[in-house]
Design a protein around this nucleic acid. Structure first.
Lengths: 314, 314
DNA sequence: GGCGATCCTGCTCATATGAGCAGGCCGAGT
DNA sequence: ACTCGGCCTGCTCATATGAGCAGGATCGCC
């Protein structure tokens, strides 16, 4: 295409998309046949001169979703648009909303749903509608009785999801990470705890998020880890955590000793699950999102456009 | 439109614009009739959920041009898109290019073209193609033999426009602003200068820019005014200058004494011209652009999208 | 609870658009 | 200069889309 055609295609695009003229009218205005106009418009599109964006908090990016499925082997992918997003909070909200929508539309409806906890999952629970399901039983898949003051973590998340889904929640009455291995083993051998974990293993589907390995981590906020602990994990290659277990960029456990003191489903159990839905948003989580997807921790990913593009191209 | 329809319209838009499905296919996917899909898409457009942008340095914004013509009484308006613009220089370049295009396409071709000088006009001269016209005579409409070192001001602009248009340039051999009124009157009574000004008055069309009233002004750079002079002008209400004459936001001369020492066409002569093309770009020039348009200094305006929107809504 | 007004739905029909094809033009290679 | 191949043009035809309309649901109002 020479420059004259390029310019003509821009003029044609202006008249077509901004002035709502027909290709025939444009042809008359530019002294071209309508077929030529059609071809110019097709070329303008094909060369990327025309950008069409859907501006809406609920807008998704289907082509990117398809690429994630095809190129990353995911069963399903939900990618929310970042168009018009101003703050990271808005991004997380959109993603949580999309995850809530996904759960609501999920068929067959899971009878038992395993959930982790954290800011993203709490947001998800908030965005579910009452009656999103009828009779879903929710079970926590990792420990985390709330050491912190903030409302909404751990218990509130699972209970919220269950109540709105017309079912009940089974909480895992254990800290996320214990200080001594013996204590962890003792807790896990407790009949109630063992029963909850057994139930968690039998869930039809799992929903979880991932945390970045930084000082804002919920584990730091909740007091399970110190800032120094996180620094050490990062030093060892940690990019973030999934259900409380810190992984490196290949999805391997970074600190086996720490991992042994962490209560809940193991990552391999998650990998073996038929339906594991990861909900991950925000640029801080790009590395951990990458690790989650690469190492097959999830079969379904709900994320934002920027994160998705990072997984595909970055 | 209730929320359910809003969501459906977004889903439909995703399938239509991103997946290139037909409305019929979308209807099957969403269990709607194709007419409903068409209506949802129309509503999505109408409510502004769909944004179509033309990404190209030469792209124009025709709807804004129309509003400028209709709401501001301009004979014509050229508005370049700011989509994808990174720097103010890029904005000026796009605008100058558009002005060059406008001149090239102008019919009837002006036999005598009056031009001012400045950074924008120089850029315009650079963007004209050789042979943009055949035999256009260019005449300077305001003084400005170059006191400064930078190439491209004053003479080079007029000569460039003339040469590329297959004609010759008539320069106005005078400073822009003289220190004493008597000197200015003496210069204007010089036969050559008087002849040039007479020729300028008879031009078929004028092309000029406007300068912001700030320390980056070409008049400061060229040494005609000091930084302090500009401060005083601003104090008196100056928003910028047109052909060296400083005006307030109503388009009135700010300092009659200074104006009397300024050589070249008067603003009223410009206002009376059948074709006065103003080329103004950049956020720094929003106030002066407003003054130019409000006070009828130009019949045609070439500008950028942000400036145009400022004129219309700001 | 009955009644009318309003909005919405699904249609018919006219129009706009894209696919595909035959002919002609232009440039490259002999 | 001639021929061949590829590209571009302008067409026919099938399809997708939008306008306009009649019937029916829904809502508010009495």
């Amino acid at each position: 295409m020479d420059e004259i055609d390029e310019l003509l295609s821009i003029r044609a695009a202006e008249l077509y998309y901004e002035e709502n003229k027909t290709q025939d009218e444009i042809g008359q205005a530019l002294r071209l046949t309508r077929w030529k106009v059609g071809r110019l418009l097709a070329q303008a599109k094909q060369r990327g001169f025309i950008r069409i964006e859907i501006l809406h908090p609920r807008a998704r990016r289907l082509p990117i979703e398809r690429r994630l499925r095809d190129e990353r082997g995911l069963t399903d992918a939900i990618v929310v648009s970042t168009a018009g997003v101003q703050t990271p909070e808005e991004l997380q909200e959109r993603t949580a909303q999309a995850a809530a929508d996904y759960l609501t539309a999920l068929r067959p409806v899971p009878r038992t749903l395993g959930v982790s906890w954290g800011r993203t999952l709490f947001e998800l629970s908030q965005h579910l509608r009452n009656g999103w399901a009828t009779g879903v039983n929710v079970v926590q898949i990792n420990g985390g009785v709330s050491l912190n003051r903030r409302p909404g973590t751990a218990a509130a998340t699972a209970v919220g999801i269950a109540q709105k889904g017309g079912g009940s929640a089974t909480l895992l009455p254990s800290p996320a990470i214990l200080e001594r291995l013996a204590t962890k083993e003792a807790i896990e051998s407790d009949r109630v705890v063992a029963g909850v974990i057994e139930l968690a293993r039998s869930a039809d589907a799992y929903v979880f998020s991932a945390g970045a390995a930084d000082h804002n981590s919920v584990h730091v906020e909740s007091g399970y880890l110190s800032v120094a602990d996180v620094d050490v994990l990062v030093q060892k290659g940690a990019v973030g955590d999934v259900v409380g277990r810190y992984i490196d960029s290949d999805g391997n456990i970074v600190d086996p000793a720490l991992d042994a003191r962490t209560v809940g489903l193991t990552l391999d159990e998650l990998r073996a699950a038929p339906l594991a839905i990861a909900v991950i948003a925000g640029s801080a989580k790009h590395p951990v999102a990458d690790a989650v997807v690469r190492s097959g921790l999830c079969s379904v990913l709900v994320t934002d456009e920027a994160t998705a593009l990072h997984l595909l191209d970055g």
